[in-house]
């Protein structure tokens, strides 16, 4: 293939490289420019810290570009919601039509940049708390352009480090020596990040997450619960539930239905609360093993906090002595590591 390139294209590519320098990537095949790629940011002077959104623009040149429109793709939007993306996309379509016959890449960059400059605030929600960014919130933008409330990201990083330490301590000494050092990662894309946790954690919790309305079960939820309980009762009866029947593992603790009944009947609401508390603690410490044995039984995971069931609606109660297993009796299940 001969490398005769339209002069308009050569001029455009030269100009792009001269102006954008390292910020533009031109992919060539046999010296013919085929793909132009650049990350577009909002205009904030030179203040990179004030850029909260960005997007990658990819322009694939057709053989007879600019007499035909190039193929334009927007990739890796950061801090931009779907509505803004579709606005930008339709403006691009119009621009391509308007500019047929002349180089269009600069026009596209400008068009996108104008849109980003106008919406230079993260839209959408913090994926950690699932609440948006509102007045009074303190948030952070990672190097990979993902946004979190500083408070939320601090919690993630603290928990991540703690998990790393715990896992590390389970390894034999020689493996501990070889283990890669702890690396903070972005919750969304797992890219390495480096943040000062001590600074982040001084931020207040997200404004919207402070007041929690009490949780209550709807009629719909209750109906679903009854349906599920009925299904479970059926499966228990058929021996299809883990720990029931002869294929189950050796028992760790044996209890009988009458024990359950006693506990349930005696359980005042404060006892129920205690039960819930110890459950949460037991389950969060993975290695609690045998001590936590009472907290998860097939079909009856929290016997301590069950209220006495009405006689007609007790499908969750096992029909015969049940074997209780800890929720996660083994401290580690290392997979895919």
């Amino acid at each position: 293939m001969s490398a005769t390139v339209d002069e308009r294209v050569t001029d455009e590519v030269e100009a792009l490289e001269a102006i954008l320098m390292d910020d533009v990537v031109i992919k060539r095949v046999n010296d013919v420019p085929e793909i132009i790629e650049t990350v577009v940011h909002p205009s904030t002077g030179d203040d990179v810290d004030q850029q909260f959104v960005c997007i990658t623009l990819e322009v694939k040149l057709t053989p007879d570009y600019p007499d035909s429109s190039p193929e334009v793709n927007l990739r890796n939007p950061r801090g931009l919601d779907d509505q803004l993306l579709s606005t930008i996309n339709s403006q691009i379509k119009q621009k391509l039509l308007d500019c047929l016959g002349q180089p269009v890449v600069f026009e596209l960059i400008e068009l996108i940049r104008d849109n980003l400059t106008e919406s230079n605030l993260p839209s959408g929600q913090c994926v950690i708390c699932l609440y948006g960014f509102v007045d009074g919130d303190v948030f952070i933008k990672t190097q990979c352009y993902h946004h979190f409330h500083s408070h939320c990201l601090a919690n993630h990083l603290i928990a991540g480090k703690k998990y790393y330490q715990e896992e590390l301590e389970k390894l034999p000494n020689w493996q501990q020596m070889q283990a890669p050092p702890y690396q903070q990662t972005c919750p969304v894309c797992r890219c390495p990040v480096s943040c000062d946790v001590d600074v982040l954690k001084t931020a207040p919790p997200p404004v919207d997450s402070v007041t929690a309305p009490p949780f209550c079960l709807t009629a719909e939820l209750k109906a679903l619960q009854i349906k599920m309980a009925a299904l479970l009762a059926k499966q228990v009866a058929k021996g299809g539930v883990v720990g029931v029947g002869d294929t189950g593992p050796p028992p760790l603790t044996i209890t009988s239905p009458s024990d359950h009944d006693n506990e349930a009947t005696n359980g005042s609401s404060s006892v129920a609360q205690e039960g819930a508390k110890s459950d949460a603690i037991g389950a969060s410490t993975d290695g609690a093993s045998r001590d936590a044995a009472g907290e998860a039984a097939p079909g009856d995971p929290h016997p301590q906090q069950r209220r006495p069931p009405p006689p007609s609606a007790a499908p969750l109660a096992p029909a015969r002595p049940t074997t209780l297993y800890p929720f996660y009796p083994l401290p580690t299940l290392r997979c895919h590591s």
């Binding site: 998990y163 499966q235 299809g240 969060s284």
Partner: peptide
């Protein structure tokens, strides 16, 4: 499925009940 005290900072505990 159980959401531990520090969820979502640590993973939910999940296991099959049906064989």
């Amino acid at each position: 499925l159980f959401l531990p005290e520090d969820y979502p900072m640590s993973a939910p505990k999940v296991r099959f009940i049906t064989k």
